[in-house]
């Protein structure tokens, strides 16, 4: 209904403008963050520029699939949000466009190094560290010790209490796998995954599902990005967030302009706007606890304090490449997932 009125209105305005060929500016945004944040970004950009935004929210895997399927006839203009790996992969396949934004001076180094490792086809917009969270009620009810390190999760008493996503279907879980390989070395990292496999009660399809299950009390421990765990705790679920003692990997949420975008100028306008401090401050309104890439943007008090977390030197270039990814996933498929639990 609303759409119909807008169209009718648009027609009238177009008539009034005495058939000028100028069309209303518009932008198709593919968004891979949570719904509220996506809505807020779309409306915020409309308010800031007057450009109409059409927004679709899908997970980063789904969006990547869609961009790839549409590659011969791109429908989207900008892809904002979601973990960096699919963005890097899209860059590797030439699905996204090179663009050097004038906003770069305001960004953290990690955001720019993300761009440089992809030939400037993508850029970091936020980052978040990997970790896990547990349901305090369930932990107490089962008389389990409080875990603090990655290796704690291998203890036999946690059998059937740990949940993580399937690395084949989730970027979060792939980051977990790649982080373990980088923290412990490849052999020991896979031994860790095998040990963990024995305690896993379910490999979920979506990356943040494990902590949501823990929040609802359907599982005890969920391996996820820490900001997702914080969001559950803030929503009122009995969740405690853990930054593992051995150190941990992290993701860089990214943004890319789709190659062959139909509204390229608007896409660049969005890109620059999304890197500004004002745009990144919107995250605070929707309980998104990632660390923004603009140095001037604010961080929430509830957000995990990145300065106290031991971050590893995550090699995005190597572990984001599709060859390495395929190799690790295949190894995980063959050596880990087939083991009896």
């Amino acid at each position: 209904m609303k759409k119909l009125t807008t169209t009718a209105l648009g027609t009238v305005i177009a008539l009034a403008a005495s058939m000028s060929a100028a069309q209303a500016e518009k932008l198709t945004l593919y968004c891979s963050a949570q719904e509220e944040w996506c809505q807020l970004m779309a409306r915020g950009f409309e308010d800031a520029t007057g450009i109409d935004v059409n927004m679709t929210r899908k997970s980063s895997g789904e969006t990547f699939a869609q961009i790839r399927a549409e590659s011969s006839n791109p429908k989207g203009d900008v892809w904002w949000g979601g973990t960096g790996d699919p963005h890097l992969q899209a860059a590797e396949e030439g699905l996204t466009m090179e663009y050097v934004s004038p906003m770069r001076g305001e960004l953290h180094d990690w955001a720019i190094s993300q761009a440089e490792s992809a030939g400037n086809r993508t850029i970091g917009i936020y980052s978040g560290a990997l970790g896990y969270g547990y349901n305090t009620d369930l932990l107490a009810a089962n008389n389990l010790p409080e875990p603090a390190c990655w290796k704690d999760l291998l203890k036999p008493e946690y059998k059937g209490h740990v949940q993580m996503a399937n690395p084949n279907s989730s970027g979060t879980a792939y980051t977990t796998l790649a982080s373990m390989v980088q923290i412990f070395g490849e052999d020991e990292g896979f031994d860790f995954m095998k040990g963990l496999h024995a305690n896993i009660n379910q490999y979920t399809k979506s990356g943040s599902a494990p902590i949501k299950a823990a929040g609802r009390g359907e599982s005890t421990i969920g391996i996820v990005f820490m900001h997702d765990a914080v969001a559950q705790a803030v929503a009122g679920f009995p969740i405690k967030v853990v930054a593992p003692c051995e150190g941990t990997g992290y993701e860089i949420g990214s943004m890319s302009i789709i190659d062959g975008a139909r509204n390229e100028d608007e896409a660049k306008a969005f890109y620059d706007w999304a890197l500004s401090a004002d745009a990144q401050n919107l995250a605070l309104q929707v309980n998104a606890f990632q660390v923004p890439s603009n140095k001037g943007a604010q961080t929430s008090d509830s957000a995990p304090d990145m300065s106290t977390i031991k971050l590893i030197n995550y090699d995005f270039k190597k572990y984001g490449s599709s060859d390495e990814r395929k190799r690790l996933l295949q190894k995980w498929d063959e050596d880990v997932s087939t083991l009896p639990q």
Binding site: S59, G61, A65, P86, N168, S169, S170, G171, K205
Partner: peptide, 13 residues
């Protein structure tokens, strides 16, 4: 049915 869905949308694409 779910495997089909995740073969298309999952990271394995």
């Amino acid at each position: 049915s779910t495997e089909i869905f995740f073969a298309i949308v999952g990271a394995q694409y």
